[in-house]
Amino acid sequence: MSPELLRLILAATLDTLYMVAVSGLIGTLVGGPLGVFLATSGRGELFAAPTTNRVLGVVVNATRSTPFIILVVAIIPFTRLIAGTSIGTTAAIVPLTIAAAPFIARIVEAAIREVDQGLIEASQAMGATPFQIVRKVLVPEALPGITLGLTLTVVSLLANSAMVGAVGGGGLGDLGIRYGYQRFMPEVMAMVVLVLVVLVQGVQSLGETLAKRVNRRLRRP
């Protein structure tokens, strides 16, 4: 493989990492609090707001059940509004983020719901405010689950970021389509797949290691 191709692959990898990192970050900033809210706003819960909870739940489900490629096309006007263009790496971040945020929200919600109700009650008995309970009890206790969930999110972002390549999004998917498929260069396609596999593996093991480190429910050897 020519050094030029290698340079292309390296650039595409960096593009992919850029898209995943930014959309993962913004997705977490939006989806994290949303997940906390979903987990604590049911009837009789800390921030009880059952109606808002139900409405947000429907919105989240709607976003999650829309196939990603349809989402990308459907929100093109919105993407153009935010990014100024609907083509390229930066533009791709918009749909990636919009798909990631509800995913993360559900993951955070599930992890927080796993936390023993007794801890909320104990905290209330200690005179904690609802915000203190979230910050000092729920999130730290749910952290192992959240870490694993975020790992899953990054993996699915990698997959989605390859998909935006099909509609001119840049990154590894874009490279695979343009060189591997349209110019019929199977070695490029193979390289793209290989890099993606390595990335997914790396993210997965990193996530699992982190989750294990923050999990105090396991006995240390």
Binding site: D116, L119, E141
Partner: peptide
């Protein structure tokens, strides 16, 4: 059931 935080 004690209700201690497992993370602390």
């Amino acid at each position: 059931h004690f209700n201690l935080l497992s993370s602390r």
